[in-house]
Amino acid sequence: MSASQKSFDRIKVLVVEDDQNTMLLIKRMLLDLGVVNIFTSDNGADALHLLGSFDGQDLVNVVLCDWKMPHMTGLDVLKQIRTCDPDMPFLMITGNADVDSVIEAKAYSVTGYIKKPFSMEVLRKKLRIVQRMLDAKESNAA
């Protein structure tokens, strides 16, 4: 509904994607959308290390994570994040809708999905929702 072009300067995103080309594309799109705080990682372990080595809530307020990655899948990353932060918005980037995995991810409170390939408009919408979530949380805490 709220279709206004919101600025995403308050969004601090961590992108976890093993494919370098896709990573570059997502980063480019995020920059075009006005997101200035972008952290990247090409594997789950580094992403968790990044989140764990700082106060994740201060540095990052949304995680975009690929579903299928070697060694550590998106679901593994989600499970680990949920052990210490049950509320961190976590958007799974998924290529195919594997129903069982989706159900499993729901059990770990995945915030939402972005299906590949996705357009700039789709990403804008998802970020706008995350922004609304963060705003509501902030206004509720005030």
Binding site: D87, T111, N140
Partner: peptide, 15 residues
């Protein structure tokens, strides 16, 4: 998890 019903209501009632 992630967003309480109260926060959701606040976010939606705006629009």
């Amino acid at each position: 998890p992630g967003m309480s019903g109260i926060e959701l209501a606040k976010a939606m009632v705006e629009s």
